[in-house]
């Protein structure tokens, strides 16, 4: 009797297919949970999406488009150009250094409201010194591989 009951729990996993076994279980749990969430909260879903659309379009709420999308764009450009440039200067970290100087400066500039002359100097110095220091210590002293 007991062994019959136990055999219900028998499972054989074919090694060639074993990569799908656990992901399938997890995917099913995920789908079920998602369904529960949607069922219990569908009332809030549509207004929520509408609200989000209006906020992103800039018709509602406090959403700093310039800084948010600026951050995204700068970061994407930073990563992309760093990859491109690292093929020009392979294995030196120069690509990281050059792009970081530009990125740090531009991002700081984006975040500052009314840059005064003094602030400009600070930002320029910061953008020059910090990446150079990081590059020197990490790539030169510790020999960490940088882009």
């Amino acid at each position: 009797m007991e062994s019959q009951w136990l055999s219900l729990l028998d499972v054989t996993i074919d090694f060639d297919q074993s990569h799908l076994f656990f992901p399938r279980i997890v995917t099913w749990i995920l789908v079920v949970l998602l369904a529960i969430i949607l069922i219990t909260r569908y009332r809030r879903l549509v207004p929520g999406l509408k609200h989000a659309g209006r906020v992103l379009a800039g018709r509602e709420g406090d959403f700093d488009h310039r800084r948010f999308f600026g951050t995204l764009a700068l970061t994407t450009a930073y990563f992309y150009l760093m990859g491109v440039l690292s093929d020009v200067f392979p294995n030196t970290g120069y690509s990281f250094l050059i792009m970081s100087v530009l990125f740090v400066f531009l991002l700081s500039l984006l975040y500052v409201d009314r840059p005064t002359r003094r602030l400009w100097v600070i930002l320029v110095l910061n953008a020059l010194i910090a990446p150079t220091l990081a590059w020197y210590v990490l790539a030169q002293l510790f020999r960490i591989t940088l882009p």
């Binding site: 991002l107 975040y111 990081a134």
Partner: peptide, 28 residues
């Protein structure tokens, strides 16, 4: 934060790139 955040992103790049000894996809 206008000083700190750019530097944090920069160091995150170093960390992400270096953790597997130089893989650009980790930065993405």
């Amino acid at each position: 934060k206008y000083i700190l955040y750019p530097l944090i992103i920069m160091m995150c790049v170093v960390g992400a790139y270096a953790i597997n000894y130089g893989i650009m996809f980790d930065v993405w």
